[in-house]
Amino acid sequence: MSPNSTGNRLFDRPLRELGRALLFLFTAISRMRFSRLQVAETLRQVYFAGVRSLVIIVTCGFFVGLVLTLQTYDTLTRFGAGDAVSTVLALSLFRELGPVLTALLFAGRAGTSITAEIGLMRATEQLDALDLMAIDPMERIVQPRLIAGLIAVPALVLIFNVTAIVGGVFFAVFLMGNDPVTFWSNMQASVELGRDFLGGMVKAVAFGFLAAWLAVWFGWSARPTSEGVALATTQTVIATAITVLILDFVLSAFML
């Protein structure tokens, strides 16, 4: 190590880790190949990452919509603005809550299992075995999972948003007896397709990429022991949570 880096011990290790993670990502992207086998494997990973996260996404989405409507409705009616509840619900869902919460839930459900899977492959020499069979593990293991994350997270965000709105409708219309026409028309009047909805989807794609990258990276770089894999799964959740929230702030600042 160069002499001036010894002064920055605190940053030295995280920076090198970041550098290695970036290099890993570039290698994975540079070796992308799209054969029939690859597409089939990617679809399989969409199943593992996406379909298996559906239950948690739908459940959480419904209750987030429910409680968000409950709270804002209570506050807004004090100002006589109860009708605005659907606006608040849709805007906060599309712009922030949908992408962010989905990414966090994805990291907890699918991210950890990707990390554990790859970490165990490392520990049980499956990655070495691929290498020795002249099959590139970057191509066969890493690439399908990266792309699957990129596809699954936006898909899950869409489903999360729909179920959350259903939760909102359930509370505002069925429990509180608001007029459904007002509910929908207020929502439509205040949500812009481009800025609010598509902006949120841009976030969803970015978060999906980030979550999949971190999950794959921590699995890949895990120490090949039980403790190493356990630590790596924890790191995946923590790192995804922190970086998603930071990236969310940056993207929001750019979009507004």
Binding site: L120, T124, E125, Q126, D128, A129, L132
Partner: peptide
């Protein structure tokens, strides 16, 4: 052909 320690079959 290489046989690794525990076989390293894909689970």
């Amino acid at each position: 052909g290489v046989l690794l320690q525990n076989g390293a079959l894909f689970t």
